[in-house]
Write a protein that binds this DNA or RNA. Sequence first.
DNA 1: GCCAACGTTGGC
DNA 2: GCCAACGTTGGC
Length: 154
Amino acid sequence: MRYWLMKSEPGECSIDDALAMPASTVPWTGVRNYQARNFMRDAMAVGDGVLFYHSSCPQPGIAGLAEVASAPYPDPTQFDPSSPYCDAASDAREPRWLLVDVRVTRRTRLVPLAELRAHPELAQMVVLRRGNRLSITPVTAAEWAFVIKVLLAR
DNA sequence: GCCAACGTTGGC
DNA sequence: GCCAACGTTGGC
């Protein structure tokens, strides 16, 4: 069992948008970075814990808890000409972009980025590292436990 | 394989 | 809107 932080722009899919979906589950469409794709393709397993993070918005931070809810499968938006995520170079027989489904298990208070940065226990979190831009980053078991037990107990 | 130019991310 | 950081592209 592994843990992840996954960024979503609330303008596209907020925690409430995800909760409004059937089974509170959303396909994690639109990832167009190979490192992030490889996490979904190679390292995730159903049941892995996910910190659902709001980015590119007035209040960036953790907005809820979720879990990986499917095996990897091709992201349909890469083949959709009307989608901003369309990738004409991707071959339908060998899709370039994969995704997993993510099921929200709990809406939490918004834990702001600044609050995450304020805790030495989280100083090594990949998402907090200088210059990090990855939309999917691994979270250690200790970081996960700290977020749950300390930050979300408040 | 190198690397300059360019594009994107995302907080502020 | 700015800009640091870093990924991607494409000529060579």
